[in-house]
């Protein structure tokens, strides 16, 4: 996708910082990631109850 010249620097910076943010999240210990996963499971079930039949948050 082409970016307009006057926006280029700002947009490139946003994309770069997003990339860094995701990279940092990747580096979290797996135990921390599992805690995040439990929250994501809860959100997913609440957000789409119809599509989540039979799914439940891990009971750990």
């Amino acid at each position: 996708m082409r970016i307009k010249k006057e926006y280029k620097e700002v947009i490139v910076n946003i994309f770069e910082s997003k990339k860094e943010f995701h990279k940092e999240k990747s580096k979290l210990p797996i135990e921390e990631k599992i805690k995040i996963l439990l929250k994501l499971q809860e959100i997913a079930i609440k957000a789409n109850p119809g599509k989540m039949e039979g799914k439940r948050v891990w009971d750990i």
Binding site: S26, I36, L40
Partner: peptide
């Protein structure tokens, strides 16, 4: 995958 990249929802 979560051992290497960020968290994604799975059940």
């Amino acid at each position: 995958s979560m051992f290497y990249i960020e968290v994604a929802t799975t059940f």
